[in-house]
Simulated assay, not measured.
Amino acid sequence: MELHQVRYFLAVASTLNFTRAAEQCNVTQPALTKGIQKLEQELGGQLIYRERQLTQLTDLGKEVLPMLARTLASAETARRRAKEFQRKEIAPLKIGLAPSISASLVLDLIAEIAKIVPGLTVELREGAAEKLIDLLLEGEINAAIVGDVQDIPPRIDDWLLFEERYVAVLAQTHQLANRHSIGIDDLRETVLLERVGCDVAPKIQRSYFPKEPPHLGHCSGHDLHLQYMAAAGFGVILAPEHMPRLPTLKTIPLEGDPISREVRLLAVQGRRYSPAQDAFIKVARLRDWSIEVRQRDVPPGRLPEMATSPALTRTSTTNRFQRIDPIA
Rank of each mutant, 00 (worst) to 15 (best):
D108I: 00
L60H: 05
L65Y: 09
L107P: 12
I101W: 04
A78S: 11
E89V: 02
L97I: 04
L97W: 02
L107Q: 15
S102W: 10
K94W: 08
T121N: 12
A75K: 07
K88T: 04
R50K: 10
I101V: 10
V117F: 03
I101H: 03
Y49A: 06
E112Q: 13
T77I: 13
A111V: 02
R50P: 07
K94L: 02
Y49W: 12
T71I: 08
K88Y: 11
I110A: 06
S104L: 05
I113Y: 03
F85I: 03
P66W: 08
R79W: 13
E89W: 09
Q53S: 15
R125T: 07
R52T: 08
Q53F: 10
I95D: 00
Q56M: 03
S104R: 13
P118A: 00
T71H: 05
L120K: 02
P92D: 09
R87V: 05
L120M: 02
L65M: 14
L120C: 01
T55G: 01
Q53A: 13
E84N: 11
M67K: 08
R125G: 06
A69D: 09
A73T: 11
D59P: 06
I95E: 00
L57Q: 07
S74C: 12
I113F: 01
L107C: 05
K83Y: 10
T71Q: 07
F85M: 13
T58E: 11
E123I: 07
E123D: 08
A128E: 15
G61P: 11
R87A: 12
A98F: 00
K115T: 14
R52K: 05
S104W: 05
T121L: 00
L57R: 02
I116C: 09
K115P: 05
P118W: 00
A69R: 09
E84H: 12
L109E: 03
P92K: 04
D59K: 06
L65E: 15
V106M: 03
I48G: 09
V106A: 10
L120D: 04
G61A: 01
D108W: 10
R50V: 02
I110T: 11
A98M: 05
G119N: 00
I116M: 14
M67L: 14
Q56A: 13
E89Y: 08
T58D: 11
I101C: 03
A103Y: 11
I116F: 06
L120A: 00
D59T: 09
A129P: 15
A114V: 04
